[in-house]
Amino acid sequence: MPEIETHDTKNLIIKERSTEPDSRREFLQHLLAGTATATVLMVFGPGVNARSKYTNPADGPEHQYAYVIDINKCIGCGNCVRACKRENSVPEDYFRTWVERYVVNADGVYVDSPKGALEGFEKLNKRFRENIKISRTVPKMCNHCHNPPCIQVCPVGATFKAPEGFVLVDEDYCMGCGYCVQACPYAARFINPVEHKSDKCTWCYHRVQKGLLPACVTVCPQKARLFGDLNDAESEVSKIFEADQWMVLKPEMHTDPTCFYIGMPREVV
């Protein structure tokens, strides 16, 4: 009968358990030892930060680049926008990097970016200048995501994640369908009106391969833009992970950007 069978199974389990010697004492000992070890490691251990997520294994590429934008330092002069235009011959009215001005007052959030801040910013309209809570200029560009949606949608394999962290476009393969332009949550891509190909920030791949910094980083007067190697624990970009105050744009998109922001107000999207 079924009831007797259930009863038998129960007995069997109890019997098996009782054969382990001193199980409660041992459990408490292990718990204590585990707690002590974890405490010691947390206080005196090497420390773990988010950088280790991006660093390459020993047999991987030598560098793993990242970009840092310190909003507290940016003055919105637009030197980066002009340098990017000149370096990469970006057509008029299109931008690989641009600067947005955020003004937060009692009425709401006001954002503008006249000509992508190519000529800096005019004085703010008096209407917005009263009762300002936050006002900051925020440089924007391709975030060179770890998990880029633009690459998933490309039907011809023309955009790709290159070694060392760059997201690049193969101009010979791109046919200008514009799927990647729609897929990018950061509006970093556009179809070049001259070449009719997808165009975006390359972190100045051609400069970095020659040992130079990207053009925007080179000319930034405030050093608000940093570029460096996450594999190198001593680089400037690695240091921001120690302070652990970095943020990324639209984390809810799970794109995992490698363009990190410092001092970004909550209102910035």
């Binding site: 000149r86 290159a162 193969d170 101009e171 010979d172 393969y173 130079l212 053009a215």
Partner: peptide
């Protein structure tokens, strides 16, 4: 899933700064 030669193409652009 990319053309290896595209890296060379991307690195071939002229420097301005």
């Amino acid at each position: 899933w990319y053309r290896g030669d595209a890296l060379e193409l991307n690195a071939s652009y002229e420097l301005a700064y």
